[in-house]
């Protein structure tokens, strides 16, 4: 359950960026090959946010599919998992998408 540690970081970073205002929405980018489960992050989020400026915020998660470029032949293709390899037979790949683990943005509530 490293997602609990990740969610603690997410809430902490969102609260810092909000500079005392309340956060209405947090948007994450969690690639399909990042090693983090979005369901587990959603599960933790409300509980971790409780009592912070992020409490009650909506959580949006963008999940880019895995993509890679073959180091041998240069082909670019979708990699649904870490076992995918190139049609040319090569396992030597440079991953170009799907490993994202970032907070894209937060949306603040207007000050009353």
């Amino acid at each position: 359950m490293h997602e609990l540690a990740l969610t603690c970081s997410i809430v902490e970073m969102a609260e810092e960026a909000a500079e005392g205002r309340r956060v209405a929405r947090v948007t994450l980018v969690i690639g399909k090959l990042s090693g983090a489960m979005t369901d587990a992050i959603r599960f933790c989020f409300d509980e971790v946010a409780r009592g912070t400026a992020v409490e009650g915020a909506a959580l949006a998660i963008v999940e880019p599919e895995g993509r890679a470029r073959c180091d041998e032949c240069g082909a670019e293709f979708a990699t649904p998992d870490l076992l995918a390899h190139c049609r040319c037979g090569s396992f030597a790949l440079t991953r170009t998408q799907g490993e994202e683990l970032t907070i894209r943005s937060i949306e603040l509530e207007e000050a009353a």
């Binding site: 970081s9 997410i10 960026a17 683990l101 970032t102 894209r104 943005s105 949306e107 603040l108 509530e109």
Partner: peptide
Amino acid sequence: HGTLVELEARILA
């Protein structure tokens, strides 16, 4: 209501 703050920050930063 929204003011968007772009972060693009790594969660593991």
